[in-house]
Amino acid sequence: MTNQDRGSLLPGLAAVALFGVLAVVFVRASFGDPAGGFAGSEGVTASIGYAMFNIAHPDAIPSEGFLVAFLLIAVVLDAALDGAVLLARRDEGGEITTALRSDAAETDTTEERVATDGGTVDADSDDTQEGHN
């Protein structure tokens, strides 16, 4: 983080203006009377659990069912994971490198390596105890 990161502060005025407008609106708005706490004797966390799986419990705090949304968000997260993996893979010297493989060709193979017994060995040597296959 250097000064390079700082853009002009001028556009920030737009954010300030937005806050001004929002604040005026919120302060001047009337919201009616609050409900005054949750109905139902179950705890908030337990009730969220019920709502999440569409379980009708007589003592739960009222809420809508979210089972479908739950499943959908599961799929979305999965897709996001796949997307992230897809975006992160790269093509380097004809070899595709992804985050899911341990043999990422990050290292220069001609470099000397640390042998298991200490010291270094040549990469060309036939030391099968080296991790790379």
Partner: peptide, 17 residues
């Protein structure tokens, strides 16, 4: 909290996800 209904709270969990 204002409306005494848990929908908003549950939904905020989804927002986090």
């Amino acid at each position: 909290r204002f409306h005494g209904n848990l929908t908003g709270q549950t939904f905020s969990l989804f927002t986090l996800a």
